[in-house]
Amino acid sequence: MTPTLLGRWQTRLVLFLVIVSPVTLVASWLLGKSGGLSAEPFGLAAAMLLTGLVFEAIAQQLQRFRWDQDWPFALFVGQAVCEFWVAFVAIRLDFVPGLEACDLARIDRVSRQIACVDYALPIGPAMVQAAVIIALSLVFVTGVAPVLFPRWRYRGGQFSGFHRRD
């Protein structure tokens, strides 16, 4: 891939909609007690999105050191793994201000049963959730996006605003 910064962010948001959200819902349902939803997977997904948006900017700068100005799939996955660990540690150490409140407020509306304020975030399920997200994201960018959006690969991952008419 040869993304632009805008392409990275746009793709990231699309991935959040089509991959991260459904996977998180499923994870939340699986982890939820007595038919309810669990809050932890949503916390992780949100933290990974925020970390990711920052990481994309850093990665874009690193990409300039590469002659081809590309971002190989291996780096795509490596970057995602790093994001996961940063997000995970940040949540564990309570470094993400406002995350719990805003996240839980949203989930409260979805399912009244959840009132979990204490963020436990067990490592096992978190890793499984992140691994599934990363794997499906890779499938999306290599196979699904090019078929759904034939122009996407020519636009540095952008869905709009890449070309200029003359």
Binding site: T2, P3, T4, Q63, W67, D68, Q69, D70, R153, Y154, R155, G156, F162, H163, R164
Partner: peptide
């Protein structure tokens, strides 16, 4: 040496965008 006859970003990345503008 480079893998292809242009840097990869010339096909649809930052370099192509720069060139177009």
């Amino acid at each position: 040496v480079q893998p292809f006859n242009w840097p990869k970003a010339c096909w649809g990345g930052a370099l192509q965008q720069r060139l177009e503008r």
